[in-house]
Write a protein that binds this DNA or RNA. Structure first.
Lengths: 237, 237
DNA sequence: ATGCTTAGCTTACGTTGTAAGCCAATCCGA
DNA sequence: TCGGATTGGCTTACAACGTAAGCTAAGCAT
């Protein structure tokens, strides 16, 4: 601990100008990965630092605060929606097809990132009228364009956006929570011991416990989605 | 700061054996109130202590940890549902009436406690198959009983419970978030400056911004609820 | 050589949750 | 009446957190 050498500097030889080891994107990606592994509660600046082979304070050159870090992580993850080839940013086969693809894309996203999704769902958005989980301006614009140009009135398009948002939020949040994700973003929590609850006073729960534990997310999602689309149809011009 | 007097002890005279100043219930209620005022993020053991005129560590005689404190607060708040005279724990005028009352009761609860509701929505439940926001065993039992005795099959009742849960969760979470509640329980956040977003690239958002900012929660809630009940009707025997 | 910029490190501070132990007041059986 | 046990809140202490401030080595342009 006394020698003058600053770091063993990894690569041998001269020092092939290996550019900044850190940049915002790398940090955000590492953060997303970390959260996916350990849950948002365990993401601390120091731990993320060591994950990246760096001291905590080094992160602050690229990221102004932990809050901003979480925002960035959320952004990085939802941006994946653009890379999903099944989801078109513009409708191609009618608005129903567009909404179906969008919904399924978001569901894939949620299932691929169960620990990050609660953050997507619960972090403040960049404007009060932007609602999770479709929380990027680009997608909201895209959504509204799809509907209005399909004959929805302005009001109907807005209503549809809200109905769509709350449907997805409710369904996906519960679905990832059932996967055991830490759903409490600010204050999230450990998996929680199953606590062999005393069901003696609850005969129906006892009888239905097995059914209640079954996973029918897929069907439920499809059915609710279809029913929502049916309902939205009545809003059309 | 040297005198031997331990506390100015409030009340004059002897000290009318004013029993424990603290008890679990009192702490939980103070916690709920505190959160409603300042948001969950700002609830710390020390602050809650001073709020109660007591040192932080004193709380630990009644509450094992902060996590447990939050759980307790959630419990206290949802228990208010029992005090709502509009909501009957047993159906009285058919299952539709029961579900309507339940839904409206939960909505009133959410609107009365916008800062606590995100906790209700996102904190782990006591069994994996118990879903927020209807997260007490008693209510789940009551719900299932109402439906099965109205002719729903076991499976249909369970499906209904889930559909009902995700509907309420999505709607109410977005509604309280729009009220400016800290929706991030684990990591929640300051109100966030509206950030005068550049909408130059988003013509529709620009045109619809006013409509998007309008509050139509009431109607949306009613419409979605009705549509859900219509859908559930098809599940009946 | 000189000085500026870059990128990560060191140190330090105030705040957090909570473990451990202290101590006054009360209660209880003798 | 007493003297231990119990109760209920306090004090102290610690490790971990987010982050402000400043440092320093390396690379750059002059």
């Amino acid at each position: 601990m006394s020698g003058p050498e600053r770091r063993d500097s990894g690569d041998r030889g001269k020092s092939t100008a290996e550019k900044p080891r850190l940049d915002r994107q790398r940090i955000l990606e590492a953060g997303a990965e970390f959260i996916e592994q350990f849950g948002p509660r365990h993401l601390t600046m120091r731990r993320l630092g060591t994950e990246l082979g760096v001291e905590a304070m080094s992160l602050y050159r690229y990221i102004p605060s932990r809050e901003n870090l979480l925002d960035g992580i959320v952004e990085v993850v939802i941006d994946e929606l653009y890379k999903d080839p099944e989801v078109y940013p513009e409708p191609r086969h009618g608005w129903q097809d567009y909404l179906l693809r969008l919904a399924h894309g978001l569901r894939r996203l949620a299932l691929a990132h169960p620990q990050v999704f609660p953050l997507i769902a619960t972090r403040p958005t960049e404007a009060p009228w932007v609602r999770p989980p479709l929380r990027s301006l680009r997608w909201v614009e895209s959504f509204l364009k799809a509907l209005t140009s399909a004959g929805f009135s302005d009001q109907a398009a807005v209503d549809a956006y809200r109905a769509f948002s709350s449907f997805l939020l409710g369904h996906l949040l519960l679905e990832v929570a059932a996967l055991g994700a830490d759903v409490g973003p600010v204050d999230d929590v450990e998996p929680r011991p199953p606590r062999s609850t005393d069901l003696d006073d609850y005969p129906l729960l006892q009888r239905l416990q097995e059914r209640l534990s079954e996973d029918r997310s897929e069907q439920e999602f499809e059915e609710s989605l279809e029913s929502l689309l049916d309902r939205l149809e009545t809003l059309q011009a």
